[in-house]
Write a protein that binds this DNA or RNA. Sequence first.
DNA 1: CTGAAAGCGCTAACAA
DNA 2: TTGTTAGCGCTTTCAG
Lengths: 333, 333
Amino acid sequence: MPTIRDVAKRASVGIATVSRVLNNSTSVSKETRQAVLAAIEELDFTPNPIARQLSTGRTLTVGVILPFLTMPSYVERLRGVQHALAETEYHMVLFSVGSPSERDAYFKDLPRNNLVDGILIISLPPNDAQAERLALAEIPTVLIDAYHSRLSCILTDDVKGGMLATQHLIDLGHRKIGFLSDLLETPFHPSARFRYQGYRKALEDSGIPFDPAYHISGERGRENAAKMARHLLALDNPPTAIFAGNDIQAIGVLDAAKEAGVKVPDELSVIGFDGVRDSEYTHLTTIDQHLFQSGVRGVQMLIETLESNSPSPQHQRLPLDLIRRVTTQVFQE
Amino acid sequence: MPTIRDVAKRASVGIATVSRVLNNSTSVSKETRQAVLAAIEELDFTPNPIARQLSTGRTLTVGVILPFLTMPSYVERLRGVQHALAETEYHMVLFSVGSPSERDAYFKDLPRNNLVDGILIISLPPNDAQAERLALAEIPTVLIDAYHSRLSCILTDDVKGGMLATQHLIDLGHRKIGFLSDLLETPFHPSARFRYQGYRKALEDSGIPFDPAYHISGERGRENAAKMARHLLALDNPPTAIFAGNDIQAIGVLDAAKEAGVKVPDELSVIGFDGVRDSEYTHLTTIDQHLFQSGVRGVQMLIETLESNSPSPQHQRLPLDLIRRVTTQVFQE
DNA sequence: CTGAAAGCGCTAACAA
DNA sequence: TTGTTAGCGCTTTCAG
């Protein structure tokens, strides 16, 4: 592998000049620049980015910490990150988290080891001590789909989203509205809990009493959701509408309804949350939380911080949109 | 940020000794090791990986080049890669390809710029010149789901898989078998073409004449597949079974069948290809090509090459398994 | 077992 | 406009 020194020798110039050409410095005469470029070409030289990194202190790399890619929503967010990062000169290193201890290890080590210039954390809220550490590190961090006052965040208002979804069902005339979701208490993203709060709030605002029998939560995934939905549908006085904590679970509800011979939307309205692609295919009514966009915005915010060394944490809220498709309908006796 | 020099000073030793402790060299006395470790602890020192990389020439990073994460199969393979890489000391840098020119740029630059120790290419077959370049580079490359004689590969026998799928339908008594897929000619993965060849071969082996009307291909995606399926189902003499080039397309076929009131599997058998998670949920009969495993194997092969500097390219075939679920059934008039 | 010193390949003062 | 030189923070001979 040729080095900058080989190029310098070949072009009969100093290595600094080669470096200048490499970095488009203005103060190089046309002729020397030509000579250097010729030498680079002849030797098929590429500057070693590692050496450059050591010298400049910049790695041109962004670290992305995110849960293991089991849920479509993570993938969609990652797509957004990738898309936005491709426009920049930054690379992307993926740190996939499978357990709380792995997450904690990344939170602790990544900011200090100079491997990346910036950190993007997706759907993994840090605790106070971790946030403090991240805030104090000289490497900027942006949280996507997670909140901490000390850190920059791209946020979704899950409570509002939960209200939006529930209100939609109420507006359609439903009164017996089920809520089905992940476990409300989780070491990872507490979004299900917030959406639940929105559900409760919307009911309350409309003066509809909350029936604990209509609330069920359990392990994630389509099949577990179907199981929970079967339970709701088997109730003596089953709900006429179900709000599922996310689209995948809503699809599980559709599975269960189909299996039980319950017609959607005639006999049961179903609304999801997220706006993943599957919701499109299944014609699911849902709350679009602009997942892809969250990734794009996270990158934008991080890059901005990186370039301008802006100080205080920014908090940016993403919009929420009801996408009305075919799984919800006016309630009729 | 403290450096190795600060630690050395604090522990009253030379920097080489600190380095030895850092690298678990045996030739350090118990006492000095303790002193160094204490100093490291007190200063909260972490070695700078970039400096280490420059010095050792190893980056402990694997570059993964793959198509933009639009298809579940890429994601599933990536999951496998991530899973296997987590067991090693290597990091993962993602290079997502959105266009042929992007792909070519990565193929060209990544092997030469010392940014990564090894390269994993997913579902992107290089041409001869590119393969030659990759083979000659000192950075080892492993292809996953792509073949080139000059390079190590983790392979799926798509022709055989196509035969397997088609043979399953033939075994069930079907004679009018449709084949629906991506465009057969594509700058990316030619797997659809191979599966088509398998389809043709199986028909031929069973003495069933090929009917061009039963073959249709077009743009990827569930909705396009549904469109194509509608076309097949609207034929005067429609097929009694459809083999879709991948699971997503098979799900599109299910959509179209449902919409057209054609009962699956009673009136139409449908088989997919891949074994993605969606196939499980939709109870689709399919050919499982062990996507996750392909990622794991790719990493294993790459790491092996990295550690042992093994010379000649390895070619490894993944098994293919028919997963019989509920969308295929014995043909009955 | 330990330390001094020479790089790894580049950038960026500083001089010229 | 250019070249010389001193680092960036680490590993690794080579002496001792």
